Simulated scan of single mutants.
Amino acid sequence: MPDAGGAMRIAIVGAGMAGLSCGQRLSRLGHEVRLFDKGRGPGGRMATRRMEDGGTTLHFDHGAQYFTARDPRFVEQVAHWEASGVAARWAAAGDDAWVGTPAMNAPLKAMAGELGVQFGTRIEQLVRDGEGWQIDGEGAPDARFDAVLVAVPAEQAGPLLQPHAPAMARLADQTASDPCWTLMAGFEAPLALVQDTLRQRGPIGWAARNNAKPGRANEECWVIQASPEWSRAHLEEDAE
């Protein structure tokens, strides 16, 4: 139960942009918030991957390539990120395009630093325990919460919600994400291309010179993402 002051113990499943934003807001309102995520660190759809090649570290933003800020509240948040050095404009993707610096997940790392986030925790079940909730799964704590918020993709949300909110579970099950085959490629020298981005070129939905984004290293790294149509047609094929 909430304490006498109305503060609650809240568990949030998912530490992507949605989960972290929700946790940040609830924490500032005085609630005790804990977040759980199956990943190794902040990222979600704004994921960044590092790879070693002959002693050189290559960086790839293999999730969202950029984001835009139009809602006044989000514009204010992005201005704060810019002032903090974790976001910058990227004109190559458009006049209203922003990226995290030095990687797309930088704003999420900043938010996670304010909160109690437990990574490497796969939540498989929500258990109603009297007037509270428990979360069950690999690495889950033996703790009781007043409320649980689910902030994961629809495909993962459905099974968690089904025993407690079947209508929401059905909606989640009916919401399919578009697939996206992604190729991460590093080169010894810059490619002889004028532009840093390509859009809608046959099976390629989007391609970007990752090192052209603000705050990146100099190694020539490209992220090439297939269109949803091509990805769906080839979804079950071997990556090689």
Rank of each mutant, 00 (worst) to 15 (best):
W98S: 10
D173Q: 13
T182M: 10
T48M: 09
G120V: 03
V75E: 12
D196I: 10
E229I: 14
F74V: 14
G16T: 13
M104F: 10
A165G: 10
G186E: 06
R25D: 01
P228D: 12
D129P: 06
Q200C: 07
P72T: 09
L183V: 13
D146T: 06
G137N: 00
F145V: 07
F187A: 04
E131G: 13
S84H: 06
E229P: 13
D96V: 00
P166N: 09
A15N: 11
D96E: 14
R28N: 08
M184H: 10
S21N: 11
W230V: 03
R128T: 14
Q225L: 11
D136K: 11
E220V: 00
P214Q: 02
D238H: 07
G43T: 00
M111N: 00
R128L: 14
P163W: 01
E155H: 14
A143D: 01
I135K: 08
A15T: 03
Q77P: 12
A79V: 06
F74G: 08
L198Q: 08
G158N: 10
V148W: 05
A143R: 07
E219D: 09
G85I: 07
S84N: 06
Q225P: 00
E240R: 05
P203E: 12
Q174Y: 15
L149C: 14
D196R: 13
V150I: 14
G43N: 01
M51N: 10
E229D: 14
E124A: 03
N218S: 09
